[in-house]
């Protein structure tokens, strides 16, 4: 069997088996639907506007939260990575806040902002700060010390030092951190919507469940999976074409 075909065998076999089983038993269920019905529901949902509005809402919150959170995380990470004194002083504070699960902030964000984009963005941003902070701090700590000596010899101002030496040297690893944060952002956004927030894909899949539309619910599940896959694949592609092997060192660890 050709090499590229092997990964496809299992999913195709499962789909065919499930379809056959559903037809043989004339499946009537609130929780399961045959693949053909899921496919029809997905095509129908793609044709209507609702799925696209939900997708837009989810992606908008994800991206806004991701950008805000990673900007804060990156700035803190750079500051902590450059000054070991500052890093040691902030240690207890960071270790005390970091373990709070982002979803636990949901009720706080709810009473502070009400339903909608804002609460979701705040929670996504909170979740994105930590991977960005930890990994960019490590990336800066891993910069070749001679580069920093050069900066000192050239008497660069600290702004120039960050802009011309630190960020370019740590950029591949910072991008890896950004890719990880993007994955977390989407997960947190969908989780918010499933738990409380009545917008986006998470709310749509809950609505389909409550309407006992198993086919539509599973169609949304597949669509959410496809979006997660596309986001990850897109960022991976960008990482490989922008940095090539420079970013691989981080993944291996």
């Amino acid at each position: 069997m050709p090499h590229w075909l092997k990964p496809l065998v299992l999913p195709v076999a499962l789909i065919v088996l499930f379809e056959a089983w559903a037809r043989a038993t004339d499946l009537q269920s609130d929780s399961l639907a045959p693949p053909s019905a899921i496919g029809r529901a997905l095509i129908e949902a793609l044709g209507s506007g609702e799925l696209w509005i939900a997708t837009r809402d989810t992606l908008a919150s994800t991206l806004a939260g991701l950008l805000i959170g990673s900007a804060i995380g990156l700035m803190l990470g750079i500051a902590l990575g450059l000054s070991s004194g500052f890093n040691r002083l902030m240690d207890v504070t960071i270790e005390a806040i970091r373990p709070i699960p982002s979803i636990a902030l949901l009720p706080i964000a709810l009473i502070a902002f009400g339903f909608g984009y804002r609460m979701e963005i705040v929670i996504v941003a909170f979740a994105c700060i930590w991977p960005m902070l930890i990994l960019s701090r490590a990336a800066i700590g891993g910069i070749e010390p001679r580069l920093l000596e050069v900066a000192r010899l050239l008497r660069l101002t600290s702004a120039d030092r960050v802009r011309k030496i630190v960020i370019p040297a740590a950029l591949p690893r910072i991008f890896v951190a950004f890719r990880l944060a993007a994955g977390i952002a989407l997960i947190v956004a969908v989780t918010c919507e499933i738990a409380i927030n009545p917008i986006g894909l998470g709310a749509s899949i809950m609505a389909a469940q409550q309407a006992l539309r198993a086919d539509l619910m599973l169609a949304y599940l597949i669509w959410i999976g496809a979006i997660g896959f596309a986001l990850n694949a897109g960022l991976l592609l960008a990482q490989n074409s922008l940095f090539g092997r420079a970013a691989l060192a981080e993944i291996a660890r």
């Binding site: 092997k6 299992l10 989780t191 899949i205 389909a208």
Partner: peptide, 26 residues
């Protein structure tokens, strides 16, 4: 590994919380 692992890798970026509605239905 050749047959099963790739399918699992495809599922990896799926936000796991999205299976909550399915679990509720079940």
């Amino acid at each position: 590994r050749d047959y099963v692992a790739p399918s699992l890798e495809w599922l990896r970026p799926l936000p796991v919380s999205a299976i909550i509605p399915i679990a509720i239905a079940l």
